[in-house]
Design a protein around this nucleic acid. Structure first.
Lengths: 180, 180
DNA sequence: CGCGCCGTTGAGGCTCCTCAACCCGGGTGG
DNA sequence: CCACCCGGGTTGAGGAGCCTCAACGGCGCG
């Protein structure tokens, strides 16, 4: 069971027609899936986005550690709840939100998660994602992602250059994530 | 932490605009959410669809039971993995599938889960869902659900009458779930 | 009888997709 | 050095899928 040390990755599932759905982006410190603690069933594949360093642990050792120490077990609980609640949030976004909202929420989510790791500089963060990553994560096409991002840029909400993204108008941008 | 004994329920999240996303349908034997084993955080609400009987357990007692007995712990693992994998599958369906596919997959999923409980009679099952339930589960509108179901009926794929659904042409119907 | 909930059907429109052309930067090979 | 290609991003035109709005019928219930 692998844990990301450095770099960005994505866990995704492929469909027979070649399209893809990204389930989550994995940032430094993330476990690829807590389900791997309990069995070797991998129903999705993990793909590197940047160069990635990661550590692998033996499942039984990790199990012993986690269930031996109450405080570590507490950490696991929170990781599991977080994983489930983000999965649920993804379903809500894909089922009930417009393209603008999905993309804006994705960006804000990543910003928050990076900020929590001290990996954001104010409203700026490293942003190695290609547009087809965003498309696969939001259930859209790369073409439409491009149009929405252009719209955001034209509206002075965000700026993207050289694999780096900054939110220029946080207040207005946050309003986009929950229009309706 | 409640467990369904009898009847159908749904766990869902509401949005500010009044729309809803159903995350899963709860059938007899289901736990409302394994996350409840670890903390009182309920980020979604549970709603009865039919008359429901359920039992509640104290979290600490359940924890003690599960982590005391290795075989019960094994059961938990499987429930956990199943819950995550169905959540992921939902995201894939909402992100990358057409209305026809989503609805057909929902029906087949329910049929399979009921069959596993011995609650299906061949290709027939009790089907208490209103069309707005299906709409909220698939990210569609009730109007469109009605049109798709009519299409299915007209094509001789399924039959619905008196809260009961039967799949008339299993082979062809299964083909609908993965058109592309 | 009146009313509300549920499902059906049709007309029209918006969102997003498809297809296509084009640009740009970075290899790669002549 | 230039010619060429290739992956990534942008933009436009047209169309498909699904939504919105609206009207209507059936059914259960007060």
């Amino acid at each position: 069971v692998p844990i990301i040390c450095d770099g960005w990755a994505a866990s995704a599932v492929m469909l027979s027609n070649g399209s893809r759905q990204i389930l989550s982006f994995l940032l430094p410190g993330d476990i690829t899936s807590t389900a791997l603690l309990f069995g070797p069933r991998a129903h999705c594949l993990v793909e590197a986005i940047t160069e990635v360093r990661y550590c692998t642990f033996k499942r039984v050792e990790l199990q012993a550690m986690v269930f031996g120490q109450p405080d570590l077990f507490d950490v696991l609980s929170r990781v599991w709840i977080g994983e489930k609640s983000r999965a649920d949030q993804l379903a809500v976004d894909l089922g009930r939100r417009t393209a603008d909202e999905r993309i804006a929420r994705l960006i804000l989510n990543l910003m928050d998660r990076l900020a929590k790791r001290g990996m954001a500089q104010g409203q700026t963060m490293e942003f190695p994602l290609r547009q087809h990553h965003i498309a696969d994560a939001t259930g859209l096409t790369p073409v439409h992602v491009s149009k929405v991002l252009s719209e955001f840029r034209r509206g002075g909400l965000i700026e993207i250059s050289d694999r780096s993204l900054t939110i220029l108008d946080p207040e207005e941008f946050r309003r986009v994530t929950d229009m309706r």
